[in-house]
Write a protein that binds this DNA or RNA. Structure first.
Length: 565
DNA sequence: GGGATGTGAC
């Protein structure tokens, strides 16, 4: 940089002709216009010293700002606007690609749309770089329909265009669409690269589609597609999300180098599988290999401690988090509250929430409300519940939780009141739902829906499971679930959880030593894993329960109870 | 002379 500045002053002092000056300065510009921000600011100053900067000079600065730190990105668009106002030189395809990139990062929807119009007006519509850039821009702005429209209008789509569209779907949780398009890409005979495959693997993870995921992994190997850190990380995540934590570990172990995302994926994978000790040892390994733990790694380790009821370890890692200089997010606070609540440290949870520097969000309040219910603490529970109803008056889970608090304290009239409020507002809770794949067919179990053709047999297995688990010495806790029967409000002691139905079905349908994989659409409790281990011993089946809480964030905290069985 | 696509989360 210093050398470049010297060359710059040399050019100025020699009073070289304008044309030479412009050309030399644009060379300097292209070098300067690479991060960090300081260089780009220098490049920008240079740009406006040139009497008639050519398009290359403009492009260098626009590109430089689009690749720089996020805070300087808007500068990229404003320099483009300045170029347009001047009226000369005319932006070329490179200019528009750089601006579209910026618009997709910000995102700047209106500006991007104007660039799109300019692409058409300038007759650049057939430029493949601009086509992909436009698809990417609309996908990043979450206007997936527009992205698809641009994509469909490309006559000869190259690999990047396919890859961009597939990635766009995957980012927006449209996993089925992503996989379907990948199928079409193969039909079209276009060979994907490792970036395409990362999106495809991530789509399999999102769907919990283990069979497809395995096939995709084999395909990557067969096609000799480069498996880099990012693709490996996506594979770890996919296997972990599909309930195959051992395979996730295998991929992890075989990696030559790992970055912070790789480590945190493995930690989170163990955490959600209830393998608290493994999560802790991977975290320790991360520190040892001198990869700085990021916020997700801490999130994973705290989640693992909460699930495994490792209060001491959780608090220890909370202190490490504070020392690391990472600003704890709401999610980190949420994990700590969950940690105390699951361990039944009611007072600690209360004090922790009170001392938080930010106001607790609804997830934390729900977690605490469940703890209030368990401790039959009417006073704190009622105020927490009211706080929740104020914050989220349209979330049925809040009403359900408050009413079950009243039920636990036998305040039937108050409970009826809350239920009535809920009815008057037309709110209904989403029932828990779990699914299991048996011989290629997906069976879904929705709580309260007993229309399954084999319900009698499932019930038989279920009572057998309950009897044998109790005999094994595990304390079977029965949760109270409120049921509306017409106008009459009745409390029934039920102990229904949808993953139990799915597991029972798995036991009914398989013979030892089958692997039973269940995907639950709500958060799985830590205790569930413990009891699942017992069942798998009794029935000689390997049972894996994975949750998909990512898609149901709004119910966070609702399963924060120990009484899964 | 410079350009488009990907991974983790309560």
């Amino acid at each position: 940089m210093r050398v470049l500045q010297q060359i710059h002053s040399y050019i100025l002092t020699r009073a070289l002709p304008f044309s030479t000056l412009c050309f030399s300065l644009s060379k300097i510009l292209s070098f300067c216009a690479i991060s960090p921000v300081g260089n780009i600011l220098y490049a920008e100053r240079l740009l406006f010293q040139i009497p008639n900067p050519n398009i290359f000079s403009w492009n260098s600065v626009i590109r430089g700002f689009s690749q720089s730190h996020i805070s300087a990105t808007t500068q990229s668009v404003s320099i483009f606007k300045r170029l347009i106002r001047r009226g000369h030189p005319n932006p070329n395809t490179y200019t528009l690609v750089f601006v579209l990139k910026t618009c997709s990062i910000l995102p700047a929807i209106q500006e991007g749309q104007q660039v799109h119009a300019r692409v058409i007006r300038s007759g650049f519509s057939t430029n493949s770089f601009l086509q992909s850039s436009l698809v990417n821009f609309y996908a990043k702005c979450e206007d997936i329909k527009c992205a698809r429209k641009v994509f469909d209008e490309i006559p000869d789509r190259n690999m990047i265009a396919w890859s961009t569209m597939i990635g766009g779907y995957a980012k927006l949780d449209m996993f089925n669409e992503a996989l379907a398009l990948f199928g079409e890409m193969q039909k079209a005979g276009v060979v994907p690269d490792e970036l395409t495959m990362a999106s495809v693997v991530s789509a399999c993870a999102g769907l919990g589609a283990l069979d497809t995921g395995r096939w995709v992994h084999a395909y990557i190997k067969k096609q000799r597609i480069l498996i880099d850190i990012k693709l490996n990380t996506a594979l770890i995540n996919m296997y972990a999300k599909c309930g195959c934590i051992e395979k996730a570990r295998e991929v992890f172990d075989e990696m030559p180098t790992r970055d912070s995302r790789t480590w945190s994926s493995m930690i989170v994978g163990y955490a959600v599988h209830g393998h608290a000790d493994d999560a802790l040892s991977v975290f320790a390994g991360m520190e040892k290999s001198q990869v700085k733990p990021n916020n997700v790694a801490f999130l994973g380790v705290l989640l693992a401690c909460a699930h495994g009821q490792l209060v001491y370890e959780g608090q220890k890692h909370w202190d490490i988090l504070l020392e690391s200089g990472i600003q704890p997010s709401m999610e980190h606070y949420s994990c700590m509250v969950d940690l105390f609540c699951r361990a039944n440290l009611f007072q600690e949870a209360y004090t922790f929430i009170k001392n938080m520097p930010i106001d607790p969000d609804p997830v934390i309040l729900r977690t605490f409300l469940v703890a209030c219910k368990k401790n039959k603490n009417m006073e704190k529970g009622e105020s927490t519940g009211q706080q929740l109803l104020k914050l989220e008056p349209s979330n049925p889970e809040n009403y359900a939780l408050l009413s079950s608090l009243y039920a636990s304290c036998s305040s039937w009239s108050k409970m009826g009141n809350v239920r009535k409020q809920m009815r008057d507002k037309g709110l209904k809770t989403t029932p828990g739902c779990s699914s299991i794949e048996v011989e290629g067919t997906l069976h879904e179990f929705v709580l309260g829906d007993w229309s399954h053709p084999e319900r009698e047999e499932i019930m038989e297995v279920l009572s057998d499971v309950l009897r044998r688990v109790t005999a094994f010495g595990h304390k079977v806790d029965v949760s109270e679930v409120c049921h509306d029967v017409g106008d009459e409000v009745k409390v029934e002691a039920l102990c229904e959880h949808s993953e139990r139905l799915a597991i029972a079905y798995g036991i009914l349908k398989t013979k030892a030593p089958a692997v039973i994989r269940v995907v639950k659409n709500l958060r799985v409790c830590g205790d569930c894993h413990e009891v699942t281990k017992i069942i798998s011993k009794i029935y000689e089946r390997e049972i894996v329960v994975r949750d998909r809480v990512r898609f149901h964030r709004f119910v966070g905290g609702i399963c924060s109870c120990k009484d899964i069985w």
